[in-house]
Design a protein around this nucleic acid. Structure first.
Length: 198
DNA sequence: GGGATGATCCCA
DNA sequence: GGGATCATCCCG
């Protein structure tokens, strides 16, 4: 499927993580590397609400080298390493309000041959159906840390039309040791999409 | 310098 | 269900 790439404006990102997380569903995540371009429609996200959210890296306004970008401009790229994987977040809210949205799954669109190569031996449904998988498939790496989603090589563009899909929500994944924050319904996904993470 | 800790993935 | 595996953080 071919799709015209129109980057989202700065103003799109200037909202709380709780508003930005569902708003990102249906948008196109695009990464360009020396090998070419790969992209996918965002189908699953999680909001991390900063200082008051025990599950957020920036809980209590914790400010370290890793979380520094969360305090920065909305639309900034926050990548970090989880075990051997890179995970990618979209910084939300205003400067000094350290909120972000984790991109948990995308549906492949462009650069299928690149993704197949990068996710060798796995079925297409396993290429991008998880936060660590999709960064591998798209070629997103720690070198993207601190760049901005309105600029190449890592952009978010217009995607599916508004209202062409149904959004549902529920508790976040993999944050069992965070008290009551564990149960907040801060995870959003496209209903019945095949690429939702397990 | 060192030990503990993960917003995960993959295989058994 | 558990091991891999390693950057990051914090303590000493």
């Amino acid at each position: 499927m071919w799709m015209e790439r129109i980057p989202l404006n700065q103003s799109f990102y200037e909202k709380s993580a709780l508003e930005l997380a569902p708003a990102l569903l249906g948008k196109l995540l695009v990464k360009e590397t020396a090998d070419g371009m790969a992209s996918g429609i965002i189908v699953e996200t999680e909001a991390y609400m900063g200082a008051e959210d025990r599950a957020a890296h920036s809980f209590g306004n914790r400010r370290t080298r890793r979380t520094e970008i969360m305090f920065g401009k909305a639309g900034s790229v926050y990548t970090y390493q989880m075990h051997t994987h890179t995970l990618v977040n979209v910084v939300a809210a205003e400067i000094d309000t350290p909120q972000a949205v984790l991109i948990r799954a995308v549906e492949p669109v462009d650069g299928l041959h690149l993704m197949e190569q990068r996710r060798k031996g796995r079925k297409q449904l396993e290429w991008t159906s998880g936060p660590g998988k999709l960064t591998k498939a798209l070629g997103i790496a720690m070198s993207d840390y601190g760049t901005h989603f309105t600029r190449r090589p890592l952009q978010i563009c217009e995607g599916w039309p508004e209202g062409a899909f149904e959004v549902v929500s529920g508790p976040r994944i993999g944050i069992d040791n965070t008290g009551e924050a564990r149960d907040y319904p801060y995870r959003f996904w496209v209903k019945d999409n095949a690429y939702i993470s397990k």
